[in-house]
Simulated scan of single mutants.
Amino acid sequence: MTKIFVINLESSVERRKNISHQLDELSLSFEFFSAIDGRMSPPHPLLKRYNDDLSQTYRAKTLSAGQLGCYASHFLLWEKCVELNQPIIIIEDDALIFKETFINFIQDIPELPNHIECIRLFKNKRRKYRSYSIFECSSTRIHKFTKGHMSATGYFLTPSGAKKLLNNSNEWYMAVDIYMDRFWINDVECYGTATPCLTNDPKFESDIGYEKRTTTRNLFKKCKREWFNLNESIRRHIHNLKFKFSMKKQ
């Protein structure tokens, strides 16, 4: 059985109870992973990887303490995946699990081909994207997505995928889910289940929080961000074209 890790801040007792109840109902064993609190003092050593200059240059914003703690928590579980040398499922504690599709996916994991290294288990949150079927298990269809999902609520990850995420994460300057969405940079292709296995439970507000903007962005910063976004779009589009071409050759 694939190990399931649930990211949870020790102070988030209600979330802990809620996700425990859902997984217990499915008779699934799981392990809580103590989330890194980005507000703690002294800060966790991993937070030294954050580069605010790059964040301002490319994103024109500063990551909040909650976003940094979230990044560190996922990063440590990527390391755990490599250490265990086996695939794992990572779930954030505000997840609402769709019982049938989630169980079907877990049962289908042994059928997955080795080249599928990471699978998002929730609905893509982008306004516009395309997806197409890549692989069909007994009960689960895996799709390739042309844009990332804009969240890290729950995903399946293999050791090879975890290594790639780690190797390309030496400096942090964007939220962890946005970093994971940059498949043309981290080389972890963007796959997801055609039918969602879980979503964010609407009764829980985000624990992450966002840094409030204290000053108006000047024209230079706005132009830099627009240039960065345009460059990202071009590189993503080229990557997707190459991927589609390689699939046709197979």
Rank of each mutant, 00 (worst) to 15 (best):
S29L: 03
S29D: 15
S29Q: 09
F30M: 06
F30D: 05
F30S: 06
F30L: 07
F30I: 05
E31L: 04
E31N: 04
E31W: 01
E31M: 02
E31V: 01
F32C: 04
F32Q: 04
F32H: 02
F33R: 00
F33T: 00
S34V: 08
S34I: 07
S34Y: 05
S34C: 09
A35D: 05
I36C: 08
I36D: 01
I36E: 03
I36R: 01
D37S: 15
D37W: 13
D37K: 15
G38D: 00
G38R: 02
G38S: 03
R39L: 04
R39T: 06
M40V: 11
S41Y: 02
P42Q: 11
P42Y: 12
P43I: 06
H44I: 06
H44L: 10
H44Q: 09
H44N: 12
H44V: 06
P45F: 11
L46N: 08
L46S: 06
L46H: 09
L46Q: 09
L46A: 12
L47C: 07
L47Y: 02
L47G: 06
K48Q: 11
K48V: 08
K48S: 13
K48H: 08
K48A: 11
K48E: 14
Y50W: 09
Y50C: 10
Y50V: 09
N51D: 15
D52S: 15
D52H: 11
D52K: 14
D52I: 13
D53R: 10
D53Y: 08
D53K: 11
L54E: 13
L54P: 05
L54R: 01
S55C: 14
T57A: 12
T57Q: 13
Y58F: 15
